[in-house]
Design a protein around this nucleic acid. Structure first.
Lengths: 335, 335
DNA sequence: GGATACAATGAAAGTGCTTTCAAAAACCTT
DNA sequence: AAGGTTTTTGAAAGCACTTTCATTGTATCC
C-alpha cells in the first residue's frame, strides 16, 4: 500500500480500474453507475480508507463551529483565568476553541484583517485590546459576531469593569485601615499592543479618594513597572527605601502584589502590620497568599463573553450588549 | 459587473486592477504586498463583500494550518504553563492553535474518533492523557502527526519526565535536611479520564529513598487528596493533627503545596523551621512563594512538543521521537 | 437490418484558491 | 553610472474534486 499520503479520488480510481469521474459519480449519484462497478469502487474505498476531503471539511465546518479568542500572549494569570471561563462554557457546546495569541501589533493586525474575511470562525472574543474603528467596521460589515473584553465599541458587544471604581474601593479600604502613607505600583505604560489603560484608571480612582480626604500621594510614591516579577520587586524596593516608606502598597495587578509580598518577606517586614498590600484582579494565587484584592470575576468575564457570543450567533439580529461587571473588595490578610 | 454570483478572487482582482495572485497573497501574507496595493485590494474586498471559500482554500492548500491540543480541562496552572510553551512557538509559525479541553472520557473519545478522519488538523498534541492502542492506531493509520506529553506509545512521539526520579530527588533532599517524620499529599487516584499515574510514581520514588535509609513512612502519613484547594488543606490539617506531626510535607503538586503553606500560616507554624514543604512542578507561583520544588520545565515541554510536531509535519518520514525531560530540585525557602 | 434510445463511462474543462518562478521595478552600493 | 539586491508583481501550474460533453456498447422498435 502506498501509504503515508492520504488517499485521493485518483488512488481510488486507479485501484478500482475506473476513471475519477466514475468514482466521483459513485459518490454523488450512486444510481448512475453500474452495480458491479459500484462494488469495485466501494471495495477500493474501503481498502484505502478514503474520505473525500472537501466533504469532510464541509461537514466539519457545519457540525462543529469554531469560536476564536484573540488574547495578549497569555503569560499573565489573569488572561488564563478568563480563558478558563471561555473554555468552560465552550466545552459544553460543540464549538471548537481557537486561540490567537498576540505578541505584537502586527500579529493583531494580521488576525484582524484576515479573520473577518476568511469566515471560518463563527464568533470572536477579543480580550484586553483596543481595536481601531476600521477593524471594528470590517468585523461588523462581515457579520462577524464579536465580543470585546476590557474595551468598548458602540456596535460590538462588550464586557468591561470600572477600573476607576476599583481604585476608589481600594482607596477607601486603606484609608479606613488608617493608612496615610501610600505607595502605588502599576504598569502605567502598558505594552503598545494593548492600547488600553486600565491601570491608569485604577490609579486615578485611588487618587480621587485620597484627594477627597486630603491624603497626599506624592509622585515619588507612584512607580510604574511592567508586570514582570523582577521589575515589580525593584519598584517595591524603591518604595520601601524611601525616607518615609509607605505603610501600604497598592499594586494594580495581583502578580505585582505577589512580588511586593516577596520583597516584604525578603526584608523581614511583617504583613500587614509593617506593610499592608492590596492587589487587583483576584487571581487564584491571591487566595493562596491571603492577598487582599479587588475581585474582577475573571472566570465570569470569560464565561459571559462566550454566552453573549453564542446567543448572538444563534440570533444575529440581537443588538450588541454592554455589560459592566461589578467589582468587590475581598478582604483577606494582607490589608 | 456580473453580479448575483458570490464574488470570487477574480472579481476582486479585476476591480482592484491586480492579478489574483496578489489578492491571494494579500489574504495570506499581507506584509508581502505593497501597502498601497493592499489598500486598493482591501477596498475592493469590502466593496464586493468578498468571502474566500474555505473549502476551495483547503483544497488548494492541502494543509489546514491548524494544530490541535487536547488537554485536561485547564484549571491547573501546570497545564496552563505547558500551553504557554505551545503557544509561544506556534505564534512564531503561522499555525492556528485549536484547543480541545477534555472534561470527561466521552469528550476525549469524541475528539479522538473524529479528529483523524476529519483531517482538519495538521498535527495534534495530547497532554497528560492515556490513549488506548486502538485510538493510537487510528491516529497513526490516518497519518495524523501526534506528540504525547506525559504518556508513551512506541509509534508516537512523546515527552515524558521521570516521576520516580523526581520523588527520589525530594526524598534525598529532605533526608539531607535532617527530617525523619515525613508527610505526603497527592492525588493518588486521579480522575478516571487521565488514566495516568504520575503522582504514584512520585510517591514510590520517595519511598524508595526512605526505605534505603530506614526511615519509615507509615500509611497514616500518606494522604490522597484531589487537586482542589479545600481538599488539600484538609489533608494537610489531618497530617498536622497527628499525634506526632510530620516535620516536612511533600506535596506531589505545587498547587497542593501552596495549600499546605496556607494551612501552616493559619496554624501559625513557621516555615521551614516548624514545617518544611516541598512541591512538584515549579509553577510560576512557586517562585513567588519561595517554594522548594521539583522543576519539570513545563513551558519547555510544551515548546518541545510543538517543535517536534512541526518537524514531523514538515517531514513525515521522520521516526517518532521520545524525549525524557530532566528534573531538577529547586531549593528555595520552604525546605 | 437500420434507426432510435439509453445506460455506462471517461477525457477534459471547470472550480476558487495557493504557490512557484521569473520578470519588472525600485532601491542600494561603490 | 554600472552593478547588485530586494521588493512587487503576474503567468501559469497545481490541488482534489465536480460537471459537461462526447463516446461506446447495447437494447428496443418498426
Amino acid at each position: 500500500m502506498a501509504k503515508n499520503k492520504t488517499p485521493t479520488i485518483y488512488d481510488v480510481a486507479q485501484r478500482a480500474g475506473v476513471s475519477i469521474t466514475t468514482v466521483s459519480r459513485m459518490l454523488n449519484a450512486p444510481d448512475k453507475v453500474n452495480p458491479e462497478t459500484r462494488d469495485r469502487i466501494l471495495a477500493a474505498i474501503d481498502a484505502l480508507g478514503f474520505v473525500p476531503k472537501a466533504e469532510a471539511r464541509a461537514r466539519a465546518l457545519r457540525q462543529t463551529g469554531r469560536i476564536g479568542v484573540i488574547t495578549p500572549f497569555f503569560t499573565a494569570p489573569s488572561f488564563v483565568q478568563r480563558l478558563r471561563g471561555v473554555a468552560s462554557v465552550l466545552s459544553k457546546s460543540s464549538y471548537e476553541l481557537v486561540i490567537y495569541p498576540v505578541e505584537t501589533l502586527d500579529h493583531l493586525q494580521g488576525y484582524l484583517s484576515s479573520i473577518p474575511v476568511m469566515r471560518n470562525l463563527d464568533g470572536l472574543v477579543i480580550m484586553s485590546m483596543a481595536i481601531d474603528p476600521q477593524d471594528a467596521k470590517r468585523l461588523i460589515d462581515n457579520g462577524m459576531q464579536t465580543v470585546l473584553i476590557e474595551y468598548q465599541h458602540p456596535e460590538l458587544s462588550s464586557i468591561v469593569i470600572d477600573d476607576f471604581e476599583g481604585g476608589r474601593l481600594v482607596g477607601e479600604h486603606i484609608l479606613s485601615k488608617g493608612h496615610r502613607i501610600i505607595g502605588f505600583i502599576g504598569d502605567i505604560e502598558p505594552p503598545e499592543r494593548l492600547q488600553i489603560h486600565p491601570v491608569l484608571s485604577r490609579l486615578k480612582g485611588l487618587q480621587s479618594v485620597l484627594e477627597k480626604n486630603n491624603v497626599p500621594l506624592p509622585e515619588a510614591y507612584i512607580r510604574s513597572a511592567p508586570y514582570m516579577q523582577e521589575e515589580s520587586k525593584q519598584a517595591a524596593r524603591e518604595l520601601l527605601g524611601l525616607p518615609q516608606p509607605p505603610t501600604v502598597i497598592f499594586a494594580a495587578a495581583d502578580v505585582q502584589a505577589l512580588a511586593v509580598l516577596k520583597v516584604a518577606r525578603e526584608m523581614g517586614l511583617k504583613v500587614p502590620e509593617q506593610l499592608a498590600v492590596v492587589g487587583f484582579d483576584d487571581i487564584d494565587s491571591a487566595d493562596y497568599l491571603d492577598l487582599t484584592t479587588i475581585r474582577q470575576h475573571l472566570d465570569e468575564s470569560g464565561k459571559l463573553a462566550v454566552e453573549i457570543l453564542l446567543s448572538h450567533i444563534a440570533d444575529p439580529s440581537r443588538p450588541p450588549q454592554h455589560v459592566n461587571l461589578p467589582l468587590i473588595l475581598i478582604e483577606r490578610e494582607t490589608a
